[in-house]
Design a protein around this nucleic acid. Sequence first.
RNA 1: GGUCCUGUGGUCUAGUCUGGAUAUGAUACUAGCCUUCUAAGCUGGGGAUCAAGGGUUCGAAUCCCUUCAGGAUCGCCA
Length: 577
Amino acid sequence: MKQILIKFLQENIENSESLDFEKLIEKPKQAAHGDFSFPCFLLSKALGKPPVVIAQDLQAKLSQILPTQFSKVQAMGPFLNFTVNSGQITESILKSIESNKFKDIKSENPQKVLIEYPSPNTNKNLHIGHVRNILLGNTLINILKATGNQVIKTSINNDRGIAICKAMMGYQLFHSNDTPESMNLKPDEFVAKCYVEFEAETKKDETLNEKAQAMLVKWEENDKQTRDLWEKILDLVYSGYKETFENYKLGEFDEQYYESQIYDKGKEIVEDAINSKVEGFKYDEESGAALVDFENETFGKKYLLRGDGTTLYMTQDLYLAKLKHDKYNADKYVFIVGKEQQYHFEVLFEILGRLGLGGAEKNYHFAYGYVFNKDGTKFSSRAGNVVGADWLLKEMIEHSKQNLLGKDLTKDLPVEELNKRASIIGYGALAFSMLNVNALSDMKFDMDKALAFEGETGPYVQYTYARIKSILRKANQNNITTKDIDFNNYNDSEVQLIKQLGEFQNAVLQAEQKFKPSAISNYLIRVCQSFNEFYQNNKIVGGDEDKLQSRLLLIESTSKVIQTGLGLLGIETLEEM
RNA sequence: GGUCCUGUGGUCUAGUCUGGAUAUGAUACUAGCCUUCUAAGCUGGGGAUCAAGGGUUCGAAUCCCUUCAGGAUCGCCA
């Protein structure tokens, strides 16, 4: 459509050879400004007239010879606005939804993408920050798959180190006779309690930190008793995670990595790099430690092996990157990790580039912001005052349930149905609120606000869907098709809604290209707003008879778009709520 | 100190990459709309020096420079 317009303008505007119409023509922000807009500023010099006059002249001239695809050309100030013939647009959009072609979205550049998330530290239960991580990861995967990318889903479990030793010590000191059951805790919460209590105890007894260090040494020496305890604690953590992962729809991984199995690997990579004189790789002459010297202020020096030859965190990451590369040879490696690790990943990618494993062009740090308390202070996981992932979801669901019980329509539902709805609404509210903001932005978490289901929320979108389904039930027609529909029969608010539906593919492609799940949630809000505006002013069943079919088709199409969009966000729909 | 990120009505947020018309919505506040397809909805109102200053441009929230504020990070820790 745009191409038709460009060709038309090129042929009919004088002195326009030098103009880049492709770039100039844009979509107006306001519907009243038509579908395409052409600014006349640049013609001003060539024609020696002010842009406002040019726009008026062009309107007079072009309106006589407008292509049939367009219904109107109008000058508004220095802009020339074109409106397309809505019958053609509505027909093509509604037909593509009917045939499900609208779901068939092809990325401009489909790739094999390996994603790594949520990569927890296994000494505690998962908290609200992980929730953000998981929801972003889930959605990103859905979006990438929906647009034809191949996705490999991995996670690295940070299952060794001082933190897990502290949890183990806490267990030994305070809870060796307890079990999660005896304390009425989820197993991973039980471990977290051991960890937190140990941390608190170190404030009183400073020798405890040394003892934890000693335990780590024993672990590294493969001491049987220590390893047994370690496995016992990890079993607890993983069995707790299993439930959390299920609740947050994490599904199966293609591959899971474990820090305990790779933390001491990677030495060879570094030694080989030094031997083959990879740029910047060298030994420190005094200590014998291995490092990369970037010789600039931004990166400085990065050590890769200690003086005694043992490995460091970065070395392990190099090894893991090589593992992935050798096995999968993906086009892109995505790390979904909090933005505080940005420097680490910049350095990592730079080193990987020098090692021939693909630098910044093949690796991407999908960084996301912090989740703060509502007063802007940081959650402290050491003190243990973090909002737990399990608790959070449970709270959201419980609140949804109270909400349903407060409504005439739903207060007498069977318990099973009530719980099912509450669970879908609660999850939707939580997921939507986290996905509707820019991933990189920090967010304050306010439980009261999260529990308010008005405005730009998941329940608003789900509710809109349920309303549509309710109308369709009432209409009780099974075969709503695009046959026999007069596509010119739609009024302004209907056409606007249909055009909005036609934007679905753009929204998904935007989300894919920019790695931006919020593009989809933002889009769904706009669709629902368009629908609710239309719904409020137009009676469908029992309204205008000759509009019934076209309207049923329209709202059914809307429901399909909403359902598909929510599906990408991992949110389910309800027929009634 | 170096590097990076962030800054848009009281609060939250879209738009920033790729400059375009009166800056998108939400929330809170406020005035209305349910004997009518679900009011978790809709309509109206007030509320913004787009952190500040300068530059580029016919045109800047958007690009460039400077400054300010907040945050992160800069270890032979992970």
